[in-house]
């Protein structure tokens, strides 16, 4: 049996314990992988590790990051949602119609777009909670229904005449580097930061966030301690609907038009980012920094391989392998830490 530590030994012990806990976190591994991959690309492709390139990357991935924040909440709650890309498209298209055909003012258009997103999210929640349909089935069904309706009513026609307030670039910060490159912090990046912060605060600092974690960990126990599981389902899917709609609006802002099928096929990338970051499909685990790191890794890989002139198909393979490797490292390292501890190891209090 280990002896109880004392004095400086104890401090070392505490640091060790902290490292042991840290080592089990997917974020730690992800961070190390990002450092390694980043350095590698930096050495191989000179243009890679420049500030403008990094900021550019962030902006490219801002839409996916915004939606990933919503998906993260749903994953933590123990569910899954496949319909967010369809939701984003529908919300974007509705808003675009209101803006270009009816010429409604900006606040109304934005509000309507977000409301459509939340509404579709709530339909998912209703199907899952009241009709007890498994989340993956319910959202796959919703995905086809809402996307097909969108294609039917839009006839697949894009909307190009978006108003200026929507499409003009908003720059919050601009600086010229010594090299002559220009660094801009634009609206999508700022919104991404805001969503990350909001989601982080919601999930770690508020009662409802902790309730969502509890529900993801053991839904029956959550019900038994008096958590309103139905309400949480609405909150989680509603929040994802909100995030998806916001992502849709930002996407139209970046490209300057609303194309009904522009967002399809982003499902897998967003899901990968969340899972890479440690959110589990089984629910109850994951963090916002983890999901952001997941997005960063995907962005770095894609951009780095691109700069190196590697085929985009190869990129898909790399993504797949990265997901496999990083999730297995996480699982293996946490399993090792999970060895049964004897009582002697539990630190005493006081």
């Amino acid at each position: 049996m280990p002896e109880p530590a004392s004095g400086p030994d104890r401090a070392v012990g505490a640091a060790l314990a902290r490292w042991r806990r840290l080592r089990r976190r997917p974020e730690t591994w992800l961070f190390l992988v990002i450092l390694a991959v980043g350095t590698l690309f930096g050495l191989m492709a000179p243009g890679f590790l420049t500030l403008p390139n990094v900021i550019d990357l962030l902006e490219t991935y801002s839409v996916q990051a915004i939606i990933a924040m919503g998906l993260f909440v749903v994953l933590v709650s123990g569910g899954i949602d496949i319909s967010f890309a369809a939701t984003a498209s529908v919300a974007q298209y509705c808003a675009a119609l209101l803006a270009s055909r009816l010429g409604l003012p900006a606040p109304l258009v934005i509000l309507a777009g977000l409301a459509v997103g939340v509404g579709l999210g709530c339909v998912n929640a209703a199907l899952i909670h009241h009709l007890r349909i498994t989340s993956i089935i319910a959202t796959i069904a919703m995905m086809s229904v809402s996307f097909s309706l969108l294609m039917y009513f839009s006839g697949g026609r894009s909307i190009y005449d978006l108003p200026d307030w929507w499409t003009s670039r908003v720059v919050f910060y601009r600086a010229e580097l010594a090299s002559g490159d220009i660094v801009r912090v634009t609206l999508p990046v700022v919104l991404m930061g805001a969503m990350a912060l909001l989601t982080w605060a919601l999930m770690t600092r508020t009662s409802i966030g902790r309730q969502i974690y509890a529900m993801g960990g053991n839904p029956e126990a959550a019900r038994r301690v008096g958590i309103d599981v139905g309400r949480l389902t609405y909150v989680a899917y509603g929040y994802l609907g909100f995030a998806a709609a916001l992502g849709g609006l930002v996407q139209a802002h970046r490209v300057g038009e609303s194309v009904p099928n522009a967002m399809v096929n982003t499902e897998l990338a967003v899901l990968s980012a969340a899972v890479l970051g440690g959110a589990s499909l089984a629910g109850g685990v994951g963090t916002v920094p983890g999901v952001l790191l997941g997005i960063v890794l995907l962005a770095i890989l894609q951009n780095g391989l691109n700069l190196l002139g590697v085929s985009p198909y190869f990129f898909q393979i790399v993504i797949g392998v990265t997901i496999l490797v990083s999730t297995s490292i996480t699982v293996l390292s946490s399993r090792r830490g999970r060895r049964l501890r004897t009582l002697g190891e539990a630190p005493s209090h006081g």
Binding site: T206, S207, Q211, Y213, V225, G284
Partner: peptide, 24 residues
Amino acid sequence: LFPNLTVVENVAVESTLGPALRPV
């Protein structure tokens, strides 16, 4: 119990049952 949460969060789960946006 909630296997994904810490001992503190399990024991004091009651404290998180308040109004939705109340800080933990």
